[in-house]
C-alpha cells in the first residue's frame, strides 16, 4: 500500500483501483457520503472524489497554492451537504476550525447529522452569505475564505466576506461556475470578466486559476491573496 503526502494533510494512496487522493479522517469509523476508506498502518484515509469536490479536482489538476493547512481557520461559503467540508475538516485537524455557511436548510439537515455532530471542528451556520454581519459574531479572523455558492454575484459575495473576515495575506478562493453567472455567454468570457472584478477591487491579487475539466465543465478555481 503506497502512501505519499502531497500537501500537509493530503495524501496520495494507491490501491487495487489505482491512485487516489485522500485525507486522514479525524472521525474514524464514520462515513459522510459513501466515500471509500483505505486503512494504512492503523490510520483511516478517506478517499477524496474529484468528481464530487472541486478542491480535490483542483489538486489533481496541479494546484500550486494549496490554501488549507492543519490548524488553520477556514470560512467555507456554500457548505451544502458537507462532502467537501468533511475533507477540509480532516485537513485542518482538531486545532483548526471550519466555519460552514449554507443558505438552504434541506441539504444542511444532512450536514448537521453527518458532519458537524461527529467533527468537533466544524461550526454550522444557516445563513445567506450575503448577510455577512448576521453571523460575524461567531467568527474569528480566518486564514482562507473558500466560496462555492453558484450565484450570479458570487464574486461580490466572496469579496464581502473576505473584506470582513480574511486576514492580511490570506487566501480568497472562488469556485466559479460560468453558467451561474450568465447562462448565455461563453465560459472564457465570463472567467475573464469575473477575474477582472477581483483585481479591480485593488485589495486582492490573483495568484493562480485552475480549470477543473473534466471533473466539472465550465468551472474554474480562482486563488487570490489579500493584499
Amino acid at each position: 500500500m503506497k502512501l505519499r503526502e502531497v500537501f500537509q494533510g493530503v495524501y496520495e494512496v494507491e490501491d487495487e483501483e489505482g491512485n487516489h487522493i485522500a485525507t486522514l479522517s479525524i472521525a474514524p469509523g464514520t462515513l459522510v457520503y459513501g466515500e471509500k476508506v483505505i486503512k494504512v498502518g492503523g490510520n483511516e484515509y478517506r478517499v477524496w472524489n474529484p468528481y464530487r469536490s472541486k478542491i480535490a479536482a483542483a489538486i489533481i489538476k496541479g494546484l500550486k497554492n494549496f490554501f488549507i493547512k492543519p490548524g488553520w481557520r477556514i470560512l467555507y461559503l456554500g457548505a451544502a451537504s458537507g462532502t467537501t467540508v468533511s475533507h477540509v475538516s480532516d485537513i485542518v485537524g482538531p486545532s483548526g476550525i471550519v466555519y460552514a455557511v449554507e443558505v438552504a436548510h434541506r441539504p444542511f439537515r444532512d450536514f448537521i447529522e453527518k458532519v458537524s455532530g461527529k467533527r468537533r471542528n466544524v461550526v454550522p451556520i444557516l445563513a445567506d452569505a450575503r448577510n455577512v454581519f448576521e453571523y460575524s459574531w461567531l467568527l474569528q479572523e480566518v486564514e482562507t475564505v473558500y466560496c462555492d455558492v453558484a450565484q450570479p454575484d458570487e464574486v461580490d459575495i466572496a469579496v464581502m466576506n473576505a473584506d470582513a473576515f480574511l486576514r492580511k495575506n490570506g487566501f480568497l478562493v472562488i469556485a466559479l461556475k460560468a453558467s451561474s453567472v450568465d447562462s448565455t455567454r461563453k465560459a472564457s468570457e465570463i472567467f475573464e470578466k469575473e477575474e477582472a472584478k477581483i483585481e479591480e477591487t485593488g485589495r486582492y491579487k490573483i495568484e493562480e486559476t485552475v480549470d477543473i475539466e473534466p471533473y466539472a465543465m465550465m468551472h474554474e478555481l480562482i486563488v487570490s491573496r489579500k493584499l
Binding site: H105, F108, R109, S116, G117, P124
Partner: peptide, 21 residues
C-alpha cells in the same frame, strides 16, 4: 471559547432547521 462557539452555532442552526422543516 471553542465549546461555546461550536455548541451555540449547532443549536441555533438546528432550531432554525426544525422551524423551516
Amino acid at each position: 471559547y471553542r465549546n461555546f462557539t461550536l455548541t451555540v452555532a449547532e443549536r441555533i442552526t438546528q432550531d432554525r432547521i426544525s422551524e423551516l422543516a
